[in-house]
């Protein structure tokens, strides 16, 4: 994607695409609601096809543009940009970085995914306290994704078309992966749920929503690469860590801390399951 050269014309094109999509979706939803069960499935399928038919109509692209600008903008007490941030491929290298994360970073002494690494860069390069970034990290319904999420969306979009390929060779990376797997199957809380309750069996739905069987690599490869994604139902971009935060809410677990070892471990498990899957970020979802 050429962000710099045709920025103005692209933005206009995107806005027009977004408006058309919104009108289409409204029409498609009304059609589905007037029908019986089979028609509902067909209507929902039509709805999904409308969402993805015009790749320029994904509102997440506007957030990716915002993220690109934020990456280059001087900010924080030290008034520097993030252009020296090392996402694993050297300072300032963004292309393909998302596809190789999570990984172990020696300077930080821990395994990090994209969001966690960005927090680290904003703290260590720009001087922004991490606590400030993780206090209310996710947008409420109707609010745009926060700056950190917008930058994440842009970074992910710069691996669009590449495959998940984090090597998980370092002992700390292996340990994080094993931890993520353990956590995925752990059942606790008043509802006795684990991640596998919803994502461990083939072809299931919650209410009307299809569930991805994430323990099956073939299925993980299809869906993990669609995050960050624009969620039509909440009208904002959701990053993968925000999605996990919402899962834990539904599971009756406490608030997941952005950038925590817990969030990184589960992300590592999902990315490993999706290994070789093509990244199609940002995605768009119902």
């Amino acid at each position: 994607m050429r962000y710099r050269r045709h920025a103005l014309s692209l933005s206009v094109r995107r806005l027009a695409g977004v408006a058309i999509t919104v009108a289409w979706l409204a029409w498609g939803t009304m059609g589905a609601l007037a029908a019986g069960p089979d028609e509902i499935d067909r209507g929902l399928e039509q709805f999904r096809q409308m969402m993805t038919a015009d790749p320029w109509a994904n509102p997440a692209l506007l957030d990716a543009d915002r993220g690109a600008a934020l990456w280059r903008r001087r900010a924080g007490p030290r008034n520097v940009s993030l252009e020296r941030c090392d996402l694993g491929k050297g300072p300032g290298v963004v292309d393909g970085a998302f596809a190789a994360l999570p990984r172990y970073f020696r300077d930080a002494g821990r395994v990090m995914d994209t969001e966690t690494r960005l927090i680290w860069c904003m703290e260590h390069l720009q001087g922004i306290p991490a606590a400030q970034l993780t206090e209310t990290p996710h947008p409420a319904s109707g609010q745009p994704v926060r700056d950190l999420g917008a930058i994440t969306t842009w970074i992910a979009s710069r691996s669009d078309g590449k495959s998940f390929g984090a090597p998980f060779r370092h002992p700390r990376e292996k340990a994080t992966l094993a931890l993520g797997r353990e956590l995925f199957f752990r059942r606790s809380g008043p509802f006795d749920f684990s991640c596998a309750t919803c994502h461990g069996t083939e072809n299931k739905r919650i209410r009307r929503q299809g569930l991805a069987m994430l323990i099956d690599p073939a299925e993980a490869r299809k869906v993990v690469g669609e995050w960050p994604a624009y969620r039509v139902s909440s009208t904002h971009v959701m990053t993968l860590q925000h999605r996990l935060y919402d899962c834990f809410w539904q599971m009756r677990m406490p608030e997941l801390k952005l950038g925590s070892e817990l969030a990184v471990a589960l992300t590592a498990y999902l990315v490993k399951q999706a290994e070789g899957g093509v990244i199609a970020a940002p995605g768009i979802k119902r």
Binding site: P171, A175, L179, I215, P254, E255, L256, K257
Partner: peptide
Amino acid sequence: PMVMADSGRSAGPVIGERQVRRVLRSGFPA
């Protein structure tokens, strides 16, 4: 319902209950 083979549970390092609890406590500070 059979749980399909995920990416090699037995292959990775062993994760102890104490470590899991520490990670959960730090991941759920509030």
